[in-house]
Simulated assay, not measured.
Amino acid sequence: MKADSTPCAFPASKRESGDERRIAVASAARQIIVEKGLEGLRTRDIAARVGINIATLHYHVPTKEALVALVAESIRHDFRTQAMRHPRVGKTGLEQLHMEFDDFRETTREMPELIIILTELVERARRDATVAEIVLPMHRFWRGQFVDIFRLGVADGSFRPDLDPEAGAMIATGALSDCWRRPDTSPSMIEQALAELERAFIRKS
């Protein structure tokens, strides 16, 4: 199932008009980041796409940092929605790893704009401490999910008993992030990378 391409920063089914406006602002900002990069993000362009004036835009996102935070929250919501479609409860470590890989495939195939936006945000975070405070917790959470998967897999026998969950998570997220950052990575190369990752972690019979 393909995630809605329009970001939703709030999961409630009934929203106030202010929430709808913030969703529209996040959507416009994401479109501009995809088209022009984070450096090309201008408040006047966002306001024009949403159909509001600058004063109204600043009411909802008074600073550039608030705008980046809103975009990041919309991305988190997209990933939460994706995860909720594929519950992990009761799954083995290996099954959960397969589900993470399936989510990765789905994102690269059906939500490529998320990859572009995340790459832009991560690159900016390297030189902007304010953006780093917003973006890096998302990456730490993602890595933490892999840590939990590897701990579970070691305990249930899915993975090598000598596997270090923290190191394994760093390897997995690093490899997947590299696939994201390389626009020339083909689907077949992604499949090869995922297969190699699995072989590195699973317990040999």
Rank of each mutant, 00 (worst) to 15 (best):
Glu20Thr: 04
Ile117Ala: 14
Glu65Phe: 13
Gly168Gln: 07
Lys2Met: 11
Pro112Leu: 15
Ser74Arg: 04
Asn53Ile: 10
Glu166Asn: 08
Arg21Cys: 11
Trp142Pro: 04
Met138Phe: 11
Arg21Lys: 08
Leu152Pro: 04
Phe104Trp: 05
Lys64Tyr: 11
Ala55Gln: 07
Phe101Met: 00
Ala24Pro: 08
Ala72Asn: 02
Glu65Arg: 13
Val61Cys: 10
Val50Asn: 14
Arg203Thr: 14
Phe159Val: 13
Phe159Pro: 07
Thr107Met: 08
Asp178Asn: 02
Leu197Met: 13
Ala167Thr: 15
Glu198Ser: 07
Val71Gly: 03
Glu133Val: 11
Ser177Asn: 02
Glu191Gln: 06
Thr92Tyr: 09
Gly40Ser: 12
Ser13Leu: 11
Ile190Val: 15
Leu94Met: 05
Glu16Ser: 02
Val89Cys: 07
Thr92Asn: 09
Ala12Leu: 14
Met138Thr: 07
Leu97Phe: 06
Ile52Met: 12
Val147Gln: 03
Glu100Leu: 00
Val68Glu: 09
Ile46Val: 13
Phe150Met: 11
Val71Lys: 03
Arg76Gln: 00
Leu67Pro: 05
Glu100Phe: 03
Pro87Gly: 09
Ala48Trp: 09
Asp128Ser: 15
Pro7Tyr: 11
Gly174His: 01
Arg140Leu: 04
Ala200His: 14
Glu123Pro: 08
Leu57Gly: 04
Glu166Arg: 06
Leu67Cys: 06
Phe104Leu: 01
Asp162Trp: 03
Ala24Thr: 08
Ser17Glu: 01
Ala9Gln: 00
Gly90Phe: 04
Ala29Phe: 03
Thr108Asp: 07
Ala69Leu: 11
Leu41Ile: 07
Ala72Lys: 01
Pro187Phe: 00
Ile171Lys: 10
Asp148Ala: 15
Asp19Tyr: 05
Ala28Asn: 10
Pro137His: 08
Leu136Val: 13
Ala48Asp: 10
Val131Pro: 10
His58Leu: 10
Ser13Arg: 11
Arg203Ala: 09
Ala3Phe: 11
Phe79Arg: 00
Glu110Tyr: 00
Glu120Cys: 01
Arg143Pro: 12
Phe141Ala: 12
Arg140Trp: 03
Ala195Arg: 10
Ser13Ala: 04
Ala55Phe: 01
Phe146Gly: 04
Ala195Met: 12
Lys204Gly: 08
Ala72Ser: 02
Ile32Met: 05
Asp178Leu: 00
Ala155Asn: 08
Met111Lys: 15
Ile115His: 02
Asp148Gln: 13
Gly174Arg: 05
Ile75Asp: 04
Leu118Trp: 12
Gly174Val: 01
Ile202Met: 00
Leu67Gly: 01
Thr6Tyr: 02
Gln192Lys: 07
Ala175Lys: 10
Gln96Thr: 14
Thr119His: 06
Val135Lys: 12
Glu65Gln: 15
Arg15Cys: 02
Ser74Glu: 08
Gln145Asn: 14
Ala155Thr: 07
Ser74Val: 05
Ile23Trp: 07
Arg181His: 08
Ile171Tyr: 13
Arg76Pro: 00
Glu100Ala: 02
Arg21Glu: 05
His77Lys: 04
Ser13Trp: 09
Lys14Asp: 03
Ile46Pro: 09
Ala55His: 01
Ile190Pro: 13
Glu198Ala: 02
Arg203Phe: 11
Val135Tyr: 13
Leu121Ala: 00
Val34Asn: 02
Pro87Trp: 10
Ile46Met: 11
Gly168Val: 09
Arg85His: 01
Phe201Trp: 11
Ser158His: 04
Ser188Ala: 06
Ser186Tyr: 00
Ser5Thr: 07
His60Ala: 05
